[in-house]
């Protein structure tokens, strides 16, 4: 039974210079207890897609989808009131930049307890006990004292852990972590990732991890979806993806990792991600692709079968090279 199913999701923004498509025909399916990583460079639409799911985009955004359902409930048709009952309880999100996502005017204890009150209706005592338990779970030393701390009194790692405590407070069934460790040091990052995977294993929740760090993907995810310029270009389990990437973009991205370098000169991907005005007609990656030909430049590529990693490419790569 699929927990989250999104088909053909597109998000357009009305900008001063016309429509801009941030997410283009994206499909996401998540099963209960799964860890899915969404990787992509900045501007590839990975955060926007998740914000669209949470209903957190500003009015300038137009969200269209053929299907967007969570646990059998259609998220497109529900009223804002019903949505608020799901978001924050069954679907929770850890945002980027903990420093700016916490409200500086309230203590972290207040902010953690707010969700417990609204969604679970716990009384004051139970809320306090649960908040203490959560702070302990995420590894904050001296939790009773920290509950009364304001966000500015905490370090980046601490605030991020508070964010995680808030997100898991109501035992969500789907947790979306948007770059949960980008602002953190590596030793703290390791702690946070261990915490997330432990929680996932304990509670059986599904986890969507949005990141651009291939190392984090390799160590935590089970399935990976690669985004490029708003489109999903590949979707594979983590092992095969790192071994035999089928889309040239994934292959180029992996080759550009310094730790995979075989010589002093690193392989690069020429050019930049297309913007609002230079979107190619055919394959979006064609201008930067080493294998592109006339067909790629004129016709948008089909999505290959699952055996080819659902690669959005005319000529998916195989183990022997170009297929």
């Amino acid at each position: 039974m699929t927990l989250l199913r999104i088909r053909n999701l597109s998000v357009d923004f009305a900008t001063a210079s016309g429509q801009f498509r941030a997410v283009d025909a994206m499909d996401v399916t998540v099963d209960p207890g799964e860890i899915l990583a969404i990787v992509g460079e900045s501007g590839s639409g990975k955060s926007v897609a998740m914000l669209a799911l949470m209903g957190l985009l500003p009015w300038t955004a137009t969200v269209t989808a053929d299907e967007m359902s969570f646990d059998g409930q259609d998220l497109r048709a529900i009223t804002p009131r019903t949505r608020r009952r799901i978001v924050g309880k069954d679907i929770a999100m850890i945002f980027q930049e903990p420093m700016s996502s916490l409200n500086p005017c309230f203590t972290v204890g207040f902010q953690i307890k707010e969700g417990l009150k609204k969604h679970l209706g716990l009384d004051r005592k139970a809320r306090h006990a649960r908040a203490l338990e959560l702070m302990e779970m995420v590894g904050i030393p001296d939790p009773a004292r920290r509950l009364n701390a304001f966000p500015h009194q905490l370090s980046g790692g601490m605030s991020q852990r508070v964010m995680i405590a808030m997100a898991i407070a109501c035992r969500p069934r789907l947790l979306i972590a948007d770059e949960p460790t980008t602002a953190l040091d590596v030793t703290i990052q390791a702690q946070i990732l261990d915490l997330l995977t432990d929680l996932q294993a304990e509670t059986g929740m599904a986890l969507i991890l949005i990141t651009h760090d291939m190392g984090v993907v390799a160590e935590t995810a089970r399935r990976v979806s690669v985004q490029y310029a708003g489109q999903k270009v590949e979707d594979q389990p983590v092992g095969p993806l790192f071994e035999t990437p089928h889309h040239p973009y994934t292959a180029a991205l992996l080759a550009a990792l310094p730790e995979r370098a075989t010589s002093r000169v690193l392989p690069t991907i020429p050019g930049v991600v297309p913007g609002q005005f230079d979107r190619p007609r055919g394959c979006l990656f064609a201008p930067r692709c080493a294998h592109a030909d006339e067909l790629c430049r004129t016709t948008p590529p089909p999505v290959q079968p699952p055996g080819m990693g659902l690669a959005r490419c005319h000529y998916p790569l195989t183990e022997e090279g170009r297929g």
Partner: peptide, 9 residues
Amino acid sequence: SATPVADPK
């Protein structure tokens, strides 16, 4: 040891 390695194996 904390630095993630881009190799699932």
